[in-house]
Amino acid sequence: MTPLSHPAFMQHFLLMIMMIFGLGCATVQADTTDNALHISGYIEAYYQRDFNRPGNNRRPDFIYSHSRADEPSINLALVQATYNTDKFRANLGIATGTYMRANYAAEPGLLNNLYEANIGLKLSDQHDLWLDVGVMPSHIGFESAIGKDNWTVTRSLVAENSPYFETGAKLTYTTADGKWLVSGLLLNGWQRIQRADGNTTPAFGHQLTYKPNDKVTINSSSFIGNDKSDRERQMRYFHNLYGQFTLNRAWSLIAALDLGAEQATKDSASYHNWFAPVVIVRYTVSDKLSLAARAEYYQDKHGVIVSTSNSNGFRTFGYSANVDYAITPNLLWRTEIRKFDSPDAIFIKGNESMASTNFTALTSLAISF
């Protein structure tokens, strides 16, 4: 077990983060012109109708955000402190909600409420070069846990089935003109705070982002590592590629593709593959009103990421449309309809039946401060 994944290390690390913010508060109190410390919050409440009416009120197992149906729920309630100076930065976020319960289920104790906890140090006076260590948002994908920052209400299948968060160390360099960002990462695993039991091997990742102007973003991210014990070791290789484009004042587009492969068994020369494309189109009517539509597909025939009880694995098309209305700058009302289609009956219907389609309608209200 390496220091980053040791329980005692995590306890000391969290204590250090809290001490840093305590010093930050003292600094702000001592000098009211110092804006280094910022406290923010976010709450998203939702109600989702699943027309299959699953008896357990749960969405399918491959859905981790907005994971409850037919009952009023809080997806994410987050309080976050951020401390930024020219040479130092730190973040601490504590959260609860159905998102946290679904995504942090493997983490023990208070760690399953730890949205974010990291510190960063600028390594150069001449260049924008940073080293960050701790629990951080994932470097993979274009969607995050904070719904207001995403074009659609629910998350795409590529986001739901790749890491939302990660723990480790990240070295990041951004060019002076802001057009290129490159990161190298040493990680504890695939969406983990602590490593899997019996795992002594680190995982690795990269991120490369190109922004030639404010209308185009192209991003490449990867993960390489074993997310099981050493005894069961199966190497996983994963890559996410996406492009985000502002076509004109009204229309915007995101296109993304996930590709993954994992060893069929330990020391095997054969691999189980999966892939998932998604396209989202957004139309901005005004500063308050926007519309979005999404089409996606996910194929994981061997159940590496999404397991099913049928022999054909997971093969699902998804479609959604949503309307967003900003009641005030910090209060967002959203509605969405979404449908999944599969050639196999993989969706729970009622208490015992299974269906090949799944249709939902969701409304949410998000406030940020």
Rank of each mutant, 00 (worst) to 15 (best):
T2S: 06
A8S: 03
M10A: 03
F13M: 00
I17Q: 11
M18A: 06
M19Q: 13
M19T: 13
F21D: 00
G22A: 00
G24H: 08
A26E: 10
V28N: 06
A30S: 11
D31A: 09
H38S: 14
A45G: 15
Y47P: 07
N52Y: 06
S65K: 04
A69M: 11
E71W: 02
P72I: 12
L78Q: 12
M100G: 06
M100D: 02
Y104D: 09
A105M: 07
A105R: 08
A105V: 06
A106S: 10
A106C: 08
K122N: 13
D125M: 07
D125V: 09
Q126T: 09
Q126L: 09
G134F: 05
M136D: 04
P137D: 07
H139R: 15
F142E: 06
I146V: 14
N161P: 03
S162L: 07
E166C: 02
D177K: 14
G189W: 10
I193Q: 00
I193M: 02
Q194C: 02
Q194G: 05
Q194V: 05
A196M: 01
D197E: 14
G198F: 10
Q207K: 12
D214V: 13
D214Y: 10
K215S: 11
V216P: 01
I218P: 02
S220Q: 12
D230S: 07
R233K: 05
Y237A: 14
N240T: 07
N240G: 06
N240L: 10
L257E: 01
L259T: 03
Q263L: 13
T265H: 11
D267T: 05
S268F: 10
S268L: 12
Y271N: 12
N273K: 09
W274E: 07
F275W: 15
A276E: 00
I280M: 13
V281D: 00
V285S: 06
K288Y: 03
L291Y: 08
E296N: 04
H302C: 08
G303L: 02
S309M: 06
S309G: 11
S311Y: 03
Y325N: 11
A326L: 13
W333D: 00
W333Q: 04
K339V: 13
I348Y: 01
E352W: 06
M354Y: 10
M354D: 05
N358H: 15
T363A: 13
A366D: 02
